[in-house]
């Protein structure tokens, strides 16, 4: 059972972490919050946005503020799984040759999988075990990844040529999907100022430790959610299925598959983390509303008609939110 002190400590630590990241990243509050939520929920985040919006900088700033090991993997079509997870190599020691495992870039606390949709599905799937199980298996050996562990993957939504859409199984393993929007005028001016004057952008110093993150995870899991709200989340998730009685007309028309049970789990966990970051001790309906679209957007698969008509999943989920009452 957590104590009030644990809650206060965790809250203060993550508040410092957020402030540190925001000293580097201009705007993108929701993206930063999504990354923190993923960190608190032992999840991963899929960042979607055009190049040059600061996705990589965000991940590096987060790793730097936490004082954790950071690695970046640039996904390309010729990238192989061994390039990610590592491989056994022959080493010679004391006159004896033997195989030794050489760790790949996946062995870090904060992993940036840049343009993940440029690699082949085989390589993409090499991240599956690491993302879900926090382990890596090479040959007969399974290696545990250090906690906290978080994968932040980016993908370019515009440039589709030479890309490989992420398999549904892998997409489902991302806790949240955050869209990195283009900065506003004021934000853009601020970015220009920060990067062109003085010594440029400097990554933040560590303001929280891995231990703080793990304790905060425990606190988040203790935050209560009312039974009525759990039912509400379940109804929302069911409403994304075209065959559900709760589904609105657009979902019936344009959706092929709705969100999986992981979607409900992600929504509830993310709502808890959101409430924690807001300084609350219980999940509120507004917490669910904030995480509803990020937690489910990447889990909805449109049908052919939806794809052909360019239906946006976010709009469909907004329709679901409006058509499913909390009471």
């Amino acid at each position: 059972m957590i104590t009030e002190r644990d809650l206060e400590t965790a809250y203060v630590a993550f508040n410092r972490l957020r402030e540190a990241v925001e000293t580097v990243i201009v705007g993108h509050e929701k993206v930063v919050r999504a990354a923190l939520i993923a960190l608190l929920c032992r999840g991963n985040v899929l960042l979607e946005g055009v190049p040059g919006l600061g996705k990589t900088l965000l991940v590096r700033a987060l790793a730097g503020a936490l004082g954790l090991e950071f690695s970046r993997i640039q996904f390309t079509p010729d990238l192989m799984p061994a390039d990610i997870i590592g491989t056994d190599i022959i080493t010679e020691e004391d006159g004896h040759r033997r195989f030794a495992f050489s760790r790949g870039p996946v062995f870090a606390n904060v992993v940036l999988a840049d343009e993940i949709n440029r690699a082949t599905p085989k390589t993409q799937s090499a991240l599956l075990e690491a993302m879900e199980e926090r382990t890596v298996t090479v040959g007969a050996h399974t290696y545990a990844l250090d906690e906290p562990y978080v994968v932040l993957a980016t993908q370019n939504p515009i440039e589709m040529e030479g890309t490989y859409p992420l398999p549904e199984a892998q997409v489902d393993r991302f806790l949240l999907k955050a869209t990195v929007a283009y900065p506003t005028l004021e934000e853009l001016a601020d970015i220009a100022t920060r990067t062109t004057e003085g010594s440029g952008i400097r990554l933040p110093e560590p303001v929280a430790s891995a231990e703080d993150v793990l304790k905060a995870r425990d606190v988040v899991r203790e935050i209560p959610i009312a039974e009525g709200l759990r039912d509400y989340v379940a109804r929302l998730v069911l409403a994304t299925h075209p065959g559900s009685a709760h589904a609105p007309a657009k979902v019936r028309e344009f959706v092929e598959y709705g969100a999986s049970p992981r979607g409900a789990i992600a929504a509830i966990l993310a709502a808890k983390a959101h409430a924690f970051l807001a300084g609350e001790v219980n999940v509120r309906p507004s917490d669910i509303e904030e995480v509803f679209i990020p937690a489910l957007a990447h889990r909805i698969i449109l049908n052919f008609r939806g794809e052909a008509e360019g239906i946006r999943v976010g709009e469909l989920l907004s329709d679901v939110w409006e058509n499913v009452p909390a009471l």
């Binding site: 209560p224 009525g228 709200l229 001790v281 309906p285 507004s286």
Partner: peptide
């Protein structure tokens, strides 16, 4: 009450 009563019942 921002679901506090419901949460209280849960706790």
């Amino acid at each position: 009450l921002d679901a506090r009563l419901s949460s209280l019942h849960e706790v």
